[in-house]
Every structure is written in structure tokens, then in C-alpha cells.
Amino acid sequence: MNFLSRMPAWVGHQVAAIRVVIVLTVLVGLAYPLGMTALAQVPGLRHSAQGSQLTGADGRNAGSELIGQSFLDKDGNPIPYYFQTRPSNAGEGYDAAASAAGNLGPESTVDVLGPDGKQSLLTQVCARSKAVGDLEHVDGSRPYCTSDGVGAVLGVFRKDGTTGTATRVVSLDQACPARPFRSSYEGVTVVCAKPGGDYGRAVVTPIRGDAPADPKVPADAVTASASGLDPQISEAYADLQAPRVARERGISEADVHRLIDRYTSGRALGILGEPAVNAVQLNAALDRTHPVKGA
């Protein structure tokens, strides 16, 4: 008589369960991972499976083609012979372990002033636009931004709370002793904001100013991506930076534009999104083909 037939039913159930665990462990824990690993080594898939590694000018791994990098010096200033990428809110910038967005929306227009203050999204955009304009020697002005790179936002105190004549006006994002971007508003002298001041009763009033509706500095140069990791920039931002990079590397703009074209991807499926330039690949290619002496 078969030994198993003489076992209690519950023992048979346990043996069957153990068999299932062994079979699934072999299939799912060993065969499937090994099969997928082998498949990933097929030509055409191997590069992606290994993280789309980027090869630097010295032939060594220089990161991933899919994750952006900051091209800044030790003081946080842009290195002039590199194309600059987008701002990043991922950790200290392009930290793959801390992918994140800024979580600030269009209502974020008023700064928290003082030593422990926090910039609004508007001021971040204004400051970045001014910095890019200064770097590229173009007009960095934007609507609702002051000439010194903060939000052009007034806090208007009115006689009847939110209505009535203005009685007091404060430039909310310009900390004293800054000179307000407007001298007066509705006949009332505009004053700078005092850090820690209570302006909660003021009516927040953004001022458009006379900046062009189509700024010279593209939107992707002043806003971070949702992941904080995107290596791509717009064609417009790449074209804006091309003269500087060509000048710093001592090459022609035509040479730079040829590389830009090489690392520009089209719309997904031909219709989705916009063409984009992989700035990380582009900078690596520049280092390989047109290295900077002493860099």
C-alpha cells in the first residue's frame, strides 16, 4: 500500500502545499528572473537593461542617459561651456533617490521673507529667468516679475477690507531696504515689505508690467519637471545656449547645432509632446568631440 495513502488527510495537504511552494520558487524565483536577465542581454536590449549608461569623454561611466545632471561649479554657478539643464526639485538636484516636484501652483506668488523664508513659485521663476538672461546676454524679463528678479506683487490695504480706496500699499516680495518696483499705486506710495510683517489683510495684486508676452527665456529654463530628473530641454532653450557654448569651446555655432540635431528626439508617436534635446548626452558628446583645455 502506498505510504501516502495511509497518511492523515491534513498531512497530505501540507505535502501538496510544499510541492506547490517548491515548484513556484523554481519557476518564479529562479527560472523567470534568469530568463528575463538572459533576454535583456539580446543586442538592442542590453543597453537599456543596464540603465542606459552614459559614456564620458574618458571612456568611463558618466551616469545615465535617462537622468539629468546639474552642470554647475562648486559654488553653484553654471559652467559656461556646458548646456544647462532644467531646474530640479529632486533632493539637491537630480537625485534619483529623491524624485519629486516642487508642489507649488499658480497661487504661489507671495514670498515668506526673513532668514527662514521661502520663495514663492513666482519669485523662483523670476529669479531663474533673470539669471538665464544675464548668462545668455538676452532680455530675461517676464510678466509679473520685477527687474531685480522677484514677483511683482503688491499687497493693497483698502478702506473697507477688500473694497474701497487704497490706504496702504506694500511690495510683498521686495524685502526692505529694497526699492519698490513701483513708486505708487492708486495714488498711494508703495513701500517695501518688512520681514515678519503681517500683511494678511492686504489684497494680493500681481502687476503684469511691460515685459514681452513671449519672453526670450523659454519656460523650461525656469520651471522644474514633475520628476525632477528629466535630462531633456526644449529646442528653444538649446538654441538660446548654443552661442555661449560655441564661444566657450572655441568652435562654430554650426558645429554645436549639428550636435543639437543629433541628440534631439521627435514627438512620441509623431503627435505627442514636443521635440526635446537630451542635454546630458549633448554635453558628453561635446566633451568627446570638442574638449575644453584644462577643464
Rank of each mutant, 00 (worst) to 15 (best):
E186I: 03
D95W: 00
A285W: 04
R258H: 13
G197M: 05
V110W: 01
Y94K: 05
V169C: 00
G161W: 06
A17C: 07
A175Y: 03
D139L: 07
S171Q: 13
S129C: 05
A268H: 11
A49E: 09
G209A: 08
P33V: 12
N103R: 12
G196I: 08
P195V: 02
E248M: 13
G51W: 04
N77R: 14
G228R: 10
P177K: 10
G161P: 01
G68W: 01
L4C: 03
A268P: 03
A268V: 13
E136F: 03
A100M: 08
T109W: 00
V125R: 13
R179N: 13
P243I: 07
R60L: 11
L229S: 04
S147F: 00
L229A: 11
P43G: 13
G200C: 06
A49N: 07
Q281A: 08
L54Y: 08
G161N: 03
G228L: 10
G114H: 05
R267I: 00
Y32H: 14
R168L: 03
P206S: 06
C176I: 00
V15A: 14
V222G: 06
V150W: 01
L282I: 05
G187K: 07
A90L: 10
A127M: 07
S99A: 15
K130E: 09
D198L: 04
P275Q: 08
D75F: 06
Q174I: 04
S88F: 06
G44A: 09
Q84P: 02
V277D: 03
M1N: 09
